[in-house]
Amino acid sequence: MTISEPISEVDIEVSINGRTRRHRVPARLLLSDYIRDTVGLTGTHLGCEHGYCGACTVIVDGDAVRSCLMLAVQADGAEVRTVEDLAPAGSDCLSPMQQAFHDNHALQCGFCTAGFLMTLDSVDPAEWSEPERVVELLSGNLCRCTGYQNIVTAVTEAWSAYDGSGGSNDG
């Protein structure tokens, strides 16, 4: 929707994890703060607020983005997914990638974990499962605890069904 006249507060409608939310927000409100404070989903973390660490990564209309580098108003009309949406609803189960992280001790303090999971969830494993591609993909998220090795192992395990030559993303 067009906003022709400059305004300092904007009415937005955002689908977050499948639920439509409507809020009036200050134009300067960052998407990360909108998700955490306005909506109350605190699984998305702020690690640097200048777009380097990747802890705040969420998925907007299918793409992984740094939520600290987007304004909430830019997500008006968009579909946003956060880490809270990854595990199958209404069960104690984890998603296959979450389970692989758990099984491979791929998180320690866990602060960066949501960002990694959202980055991973946003891509087609068939295009990214080659070892060098996994490293390239993960290099957009900082982790200070694990030395990355177990994260790579977890991803490799979760994506073992994909050989990089194509295949479905249904698993």
């Binding site: 984890l94 998180l107 949501a114």
Partner: peptide, 12 residues
């Protein structure tokens, strides 16, 4: 300790 951070329910 894993479940909270994995599912976004950690409490920092």
């Amino acid at each position: 300790e894993d479940r909270g951070p994995l599912t976004g329910r950690g409490r920092y």
